[in-house]
Nucleic acid binder design. Structure first.
Lengths: 342, 342
DNA sequence: AAACCTTCTGCACACGTGTGCATTAACTAT
DNA sequence: ATAGTTAATGCACACGTGTGCAGAAGGTTT
């Protein structure tokens, strides 16, 4: 059994209350006994029980993070930003991955509630809204990241996907492309839709028509799915000259399929990604993509939550706060001017 | 404030002990009241307090996981295996990333102890041994993963890096290579050393000499470091014809540098990786690597820990258990027979 | 010397759960 | 009808920590 403040009390000949106060830095206790107690505590290797403390103070100093999958390098970098902010404020992270599984989602929400997490950050774009509201209803401060799907969440931070997609589209248009396709991920909900809409909006602005056959969706963002989708576009009688992929993972698979099929990128086909994950710099050719400020997104979402925890007393239902971060176009070598074929 | 069993007791007109027993499935309580209580509990949206329960039962149903960095896709897949096993047994994960920072490591250990984690899995090959022992000394069951550095940890599970490296070396030798180099990661300690030794051992077995200049180490496993290291090998008067990289990340960067420098892989130079992370299948050319059973490593380490928690009473210091998993050679297109130059 | 203030410490209770023991009610056996 | 057995529930305490309040010790003011 771990040692408690009572053990320290016995050892120093004072009451456990005095020990509690001394270690808590309460100025009521004389400096002399205070330092003596602290010394003994250190010698005995005392570690306070988070459970007991939480029970009494009604706060855990833990914030929960719900994420789609830890495998996804995109989320990893967001997590990194969250952890930095949390750690600095003395908070620990309780991370759970939903794996797109509703049953798992429910279990996660339940666990968060049982653990009495001080707040929750939802980074999963596909996380079901009712489960999120379940947290809100139980009084948990919630910050949603890249989850514009529902306006019921009062605190959110997200990347401007519409703008990002427009930037990419403008880039391709400027290179002379008009036959531009979009490869989406039906599982990522609003995020994919926003990117599609940004593309459409910019095309309309430029007075270009969009071929409905150029819009294709797959059920996830595994590179393998990107790879498989090349078939679809190649079977079109009128092929696109450029393709905007929902994210880097799909683009990486897509590029690979191009190489295998002898389609030269960017000469035959320009390809863009989205997110700028580490590996997008190492593809062949290096991927033109939209650099999303992943670390900042994570960091600021954590800061927003922390701020929320500070003024917990006020009614958070009446306040709204929404922060939008913009990414920037990162031109590498997977896009080029349109070269006439044959 | 969240509702408690006392609230349920008041509502149903019984004592809080009866509620506790009813929800705990104690057969002492009559079936009638039991179901009635359960129904009310559900209606009121009761969520037990993990803190209070832990305090009383002295177990948290949480296992701590210490990892180098969440960014690393290699660790991500191990985490996946751990989570599956843990979830199935009703345990949650408390994940912390050390980021190779000693101060952070100390904080993590302290947090784990304060949280009274039921057990700890250390997945960080570079995690300092004394901090691990600190956990052991405080009675925490510990399982180390890929951490052969010190035999003081009684429960460990690791991949046979020596064997894996030998498999790769044999593969290259069979292709006719004799001028083989090794690109290591000085930060990963024993792991890198084992892979180096596997390489040396197999070379010796084949009667081949190793050029000391062919062994080069960098301080990490970021692809950028792999990319930079090409310079070194190209400046050698007698260049190697094949190179074994410590892991896929380095190999991916290395391949990229080759492409930029006009070095044809595998015609001019054969390159191998290690781990088989997702992206190694999408490089150009696809990477020959050693497929490490990452999921299994994670899963079995969690199972080992769970087993350990079951027979907690016995003195774990007297028992040893070590499990070794072997990976398998995965030949793709970054290696080929030696073709005479010019 | 009595009355007061200041400084420090201990007592006792609370947080939400779980559990040994006593208690009550209901039923069976003589 | 009484004693004995079984089934169901409540009482009271414990886990480790924090905190309002009372109280003790020592010093200062009248």
């Amino acid at each position: 059994m771990a040692i408690t403040i009572k053990d320290i009390a016995k050892r120093t000949g004072v009451s456990h209350s005095t020990v509690s106060r001394a270690l808590g830095g309460n100025s009521l206790i004389s400096e002399a006994t205070s330092t003596r107690i602290r010394k003994v505590a250190r010698e005995m290797g005392y570690q306070p029980s988070a459970a007991a403390r939480s029970l009494k103070t009604n706060q855990t100093k833990v914030i929960g993070v719900i994420v789609n999958s830890i495998d996804d390098p995109f989320f990893s970098e967001i997590l990194f930003g969250i952890e930095d902010a949390a750690q600095q404020a003395g908070y620990s992270l309780f991370i759970a991955a939903s794996q797109y599984d509703p049953i798992r989602e429910q279990k996660i929400v339940q666990t968060m509630m049982e653990q009495r997490t001080d707040g929750v950050i939802i980074c999963s774009s596909s996380f079901s809204a009712d489960k999120g509201r379940q947290l809100l209803a139980n009084g948990f401060p919630v910050v949603v990241v890249n989850y514009k799907a529902n306006e019921n969440f009062n605190y959110s931070i997200y990347h401007d996907d519409l703008d990002g997609s427009q930037q990419l589209t403008r880039h391709l248009l400027a290179l002379g492309h008009t036959k531009i396709a979009y490869l989406g991920n039906s599982k990522s909900g609003r995020t994919s839709l926003d990117r599609l809409n940004g593309f459409k909006k910019e095309m309309r602005k430029a007075g270009e028509k969009i071929n409905p056959a150029y819009i294709y969706e797959v059920g996830g963002s595994d590179p393998a799915l990107g790879k498989e989708s090349l078939h679809y576009f190649m079977n079109l009688s009128d092929r696109p000259t450029a393709i905007i992929c929902f994210n880097d993972m799909l683009a990486i698979g897509f590029l690979h399929a191009c190489r295998q099929s002898g389609i030269r990128v960017p000469d035959d086909l320009s390809v863009t990604g989205f997110d700028n994950i580490t590996f997008s710099a190492y593809t062949s050719p290096p991927l033109t993509t939209l650099d999303q400020p992943k670390y900042s997104i994570g960091n600021e979402s954590a800061q927003l939550l922390l701020e929320l925890l500070g003024k917990k007393i006020e009614n958070q239902n009446n306040t709204h706060k929404e922060k939008v971060l913009k990414g920037s176009l990162l031109v590498r070598n997977s896009t080029s001017t349109l070269t006439p074929k044959e």
